[in-house]
Amino acid sequence: MSEAPTSVACSNCSLRELCMPAGLAPGELARIDELVATRRKVRRGTALFQAGEPFTSLYAVRTGFFKTCVASGDGRGQVTGFQMAGEIIGLDGIVNDRHTCEAVALEDAEVCVMPFDRIAELAREVGALQHHLHRVMSREIVREHGVMLLLGTMNAEERLAAFLLNLAQRLHARGFSSSELVLRMTRQEIGNFLGLKLETVSRTFSRFAEQGLLEVRHRQVRIADPARLAGLLPNPGGT
């Protein structure tokens, strides 16, 4: 990993609306620009941080994809989420001042480093920033509840459909196609996250392709019939 002064300030970054609060005054934006003064490049397969490391910063993903993992009781890794540009990583460390999971780059990536002590100090003065941090943390709680629902009540087809639709929705919010996906994670990693065996994930992808729901070519996936795919969910249209 390497660090360098950022050449793209928050005030003119195209991802600002995703990871920073809206409606900040010019002076407030300038203070945030000073706060986020460091970028870090993370090579594919490298950990941004590991479980047990001291917590010092939050990280806003600028480019690339990450997965977060925790170690289970028997030492095996459990994928807990996938993060993309405009999303915040590192919230797990706030509670005990140490990270409880590791974040690994699924491709060459870059993050903006946000020292948490300085964020907390600025948030006390800038109400919009404090409110935004609360929203980010709340969104993480909601996401965890969604994963629990996914693993506890849905069958294999419902789990994979929900995963693909959620991924497409998040990518579309970043200006990408809502139907054309390039999966940065492996089938094994998808299965680990969804609580499914690799063979089940592969069979379900094949079944969706046979049914005309997807067009699949290695890691390139096109959602051919979003409405029918969403119709597989217990609450159609939701993820």
Results as ranks from 00 to 15, higher is better:
R170G: 06
S14M: 09
V42F: 03
L198V: 14
G90N: 13
M20C: 07
R184G: 15
A37T: 02
R217S: 12
E53D: 15
F82D: 01
R184D: 10
F65K: 04
L198A: 13
L91D: 04
Q169Y: 12
R170T: 06
C10E: 02
M137G: 08
R31W: 02
G81R: 04
C10N: 07
L35C: 04
H99I: 06
T186A: 05
E125G: 07
N155K: 11
R31T: 03
V126T: 05
A156Q: 05
L232T: 02
D33L: 02
V36L: 14
G175T: 08
M84R: 15
F55S: 05
L229N: 05
V136H: 02
A209Y: 08
T204M: 10
S2F: 05
R124K: 08
A162K: 00
A47D: 05
H99F: 12
P115C: 04
E210V: 11
T204R: 08
G73I: 11
I190P: 01
Q83S: 12
A4Q: 12
E199S: 15
L24G: 01
G195I: 14
F208T: 03
P26Y: 08
V126C: 04
R43F: 09
E107T: 10
L133Q: 04
R174M: 13
G23K: 06
E3H: 10
T204H: 06
S14K: 12
I89A: 10
M84E: 14
V79P: 09
Q78S: 10
D33E: 06
L29F: 01
N12A: 01
A71F: 03
L167E: 01
T38Q: 07
D225F: 00
R76M: 13
S178C: 13
R43D: 15
N96T: 12
F193A: 07
E140D: 13
H131V: 05
N192P: 09
T204D: 11
G52P: 02
S72V: 12
V95Y: 14
Q83R: 13
A51L: 03
L122D: 00
V216Y: 07
G81T: 06
A103M: 11
Q188T: 10
L29T: 00
I94C: 12
M114C: 14
V201E: 03
R159M: 01
T63N: 15
C19P: 00
E34D: 14
Q211L: 13
Q130G: 15
L196V: 08
V95H: 14
L106S: 11
A85D: 15
E107Y: 11
E180D: 15
L171I: 07
R159A: 00
A161V: 11
A230I: 11
L91W: 04
K67D: 07
N155H: 14
P115L: 03
G23V: 04
